[in-house]
Design a protein around this nucleic acid. Structure first.
Length: 256
DNA sequence: ATGGTCGATCTTCGA
């Protein structure tokens, strides 16, 4: 079973890339972020034509998440208790024997800003919610655009990014608290090397110069990690014409 | 050189 997360930065623009990538990589489960589409405009028919079930929680212009799966999707949650948030950033559902949370974590703009405070509060409340989910069933996957580089190996220039947005200690501590519930950054189980990125800024020819960060993660509970066979980041769609600024991050599990 | 590029909806904001 192949799981993936991909921030597509407008599904309206990137639908051909999603179609191309799903056809070639054939993920069984794909979490998408930044659809930037209200639900009435979601391309359900095109996604179903690829052979997927799909659920989505979107809004106009910003944010928006979706979950595509080869298996039936059940028990969908789009709102977290105690987080009365109009921003559509979370989608949790059962797929097969897994519970899957797809997150578009707040970017936070700049350390100390209002959006930064919202980011830390959002992470705190989502972590508390996921703590309950894990207690119910540890077969949990938490995937998405975390907008946090876990450590300096995940940053092309750690000195320039030191205590900056996406890399600050409070953000990394918030991610640590989520992991400490009993989740593993699956990519690091297979690759401890520095310089494996999932996002490159459109500006300054970031991708060509490999000036990237690893901020797209697949976290897995212990029973899921026992089945983990490989984890990777597929840079290929980032080379395509008019790409998203993110690449898909993957986790492959042995079948039960 | 105090920028740079995208996307969505305006001529600005968010990333």
């Amino acid at each position: 079973m192949k799981l993936a997360t991909w921030n597509v930065n407008s599904l309206n623009v990137r639908l051909p890339h999603v179609e191309q990538w799903c056809t070639s990589a054939r993920p069984d489960l794909l979490g998408i972020q930044e659809t930037k589409l209200e639900d009435a405009k979601f391309p359900r028919t095109a996604i179903e034509a690829l052979g997927y079930e799909v659920v989505f929680s979107g809004q106009k212009t910003y944010n928006g998440v979706a979950l595509l799966a080869k298996q039936p999707i059940r028990d969908v949650v789009t709102d977290v208790p105690g987080l009365d948030d109009p921003q559509r950033r979370i989608l949790v559902a059962n797929v097969g024997e897994l519970r899957v949370a797809n997150l578009y974590v707040v970017n936070g703009q700049a350390v100390g800003s209002e959006k930064y405070a919202y980011k830390l509060d959002w992470l705190d409340k989502v972590t508390r919610f996921l703590e309950g989910e894990l207690r119910n069933d540890p077969r949990l996957i938490v995937m998405g655009d975390f907008n946090i580089a876990p450590d300096d190996r995940d940053v092309y220039d750690p000195l320039a990014w030191k205590e900056q947005i996406l890399c600050s200690t409070p953000e990394r501590d918030a991610l640590r608290r989520l992991l400490d519930l009993g989740l593993v950054d699956s990519f690091r189980r297979f690759d401890e090397s520095a310089g494996k990125y999932s996002w490159w800024d459109y500006r300054q020819a970031g991708f060509r110069r490999d000036l990237g960060l690893r901020i797209d993660l697949v976290l897995a509970g212990a029973p899921v990690m026992e089945r983990a066979e490989a984890a990777s980041i597929d840079r290929e769609p980032r080379t395509w014409e008019r790409p998203s600024d993110h690449a898909p991050a993957l986790l492959e599990l042995s079948d039960v």
